[in-house]
Amino acid sequence: EVTIKANLIFANGSTQTAEFKGTFEKATSEAYAYADTLKKDNGEYTVDVADKGYTLNIKFAG
């Protein structure tokens, strides 16, 4: 089991951190699915992958 950390960075400057656990593939998939649910209210997003994929910096356009 691994932990994927998602740093969520919103257009208004606020930030939030979420963690997803499971296999690497499952946790990564859940992180992207979570970002997709936030897209409606926060706009499109870009992802900067860090720490060999264990950290995702997800920035929303607003």
Rank of each mutant, 00 (worst) to 15 (best):
S14E: 08
Y54G: 05
A50S: 14
K5N: 13
V47I: 08
D36L: 04
A6E: 03
A50N: 08
D51Y: 03
V2L: 07
G53F: 03
T23D: 13
K5M: 15
T3F: 07
K21E: 10
K21D: 07
T37V: 12
A11D: 13
K52H: 13
G62D: 10
F24Y: 12
E19Q: 11
G22S: 05
A50P: 04
Y34R: 04
A33N: 10
I58E: 00
T15G: 08
V49C: 05
T55I: 14
A33M: 13
E25P: 07
T46E: 11
E44D: 11
T37P: 02
K5A: 09
A6P: 00
V2E: 14
K40T: 13
N7H: 14
T28F: 09
A11M: 10
G22P: 01
L38R: 05
Y32W: 09
L38T: 02
V47D: 02
N7K: 12
I4A: 01
I58M: 10
F20H: 02
S29N: 14
L56W: 03
F10A: 03
D36N: 11
K26Y: 12
K26G: 15
N57F: 08
A18W: 12
S29M: 13
T55M: 11
F60M: 02
G62H: 10
E44A: 08
K39G: 06
D48R: 08
D41E: 10
T15Q: 14
A6N: 01
N42M: 13
D41Y: 07
N42G: 06
G43D: 03
T3R: 10
L38D: 01
K39Y: 06
A27M: 02
F60D: 00
A35L: 13
A11V: 14
I4E: 00
G43R: 02
F20C: 02
G13R: 09
N57E: 10
A27K: 01
A18I: 15
Y45P: 02
S29Q: 14
Y54I: 06
A6Y: 01
E1Q: 07
V49F: 12
T46A: 09
Y32M: 14
L56C: 01
A50E: 13
S29E: 13
K52L: 14
E30G: 07
A6Q: 03
E1S: 07
Y54P: 02
A33L: 11
K5D: 03
Q16Y: 07
T37S: 08
S14K: 14
L8T: 03
Y45K: 01
L8M: 13
N12Q: 07
T46M: 12
Q16D: 14
G13W: 07
T28L: 15
N42S: 10
A27V: 04
G13K: 13
N12F: 06
N57G: 04
F24H: 08
G62F: 07
E19T: 11
D48A: 11
Y45G: 01
E19Y: 13
N12P: 04
G53Q: 03
E44K: 07
A31Y: 01
D41I: 12
G13S: 09
D48L: 11
Y34D: 01
V2H: 10
F20M: 03
V47Y: 04
N42E: 12
F20E: 00
K21V: 15
A18C: 05
A35W: 01
T28N: 07
T3Y: 07
G43W: 03
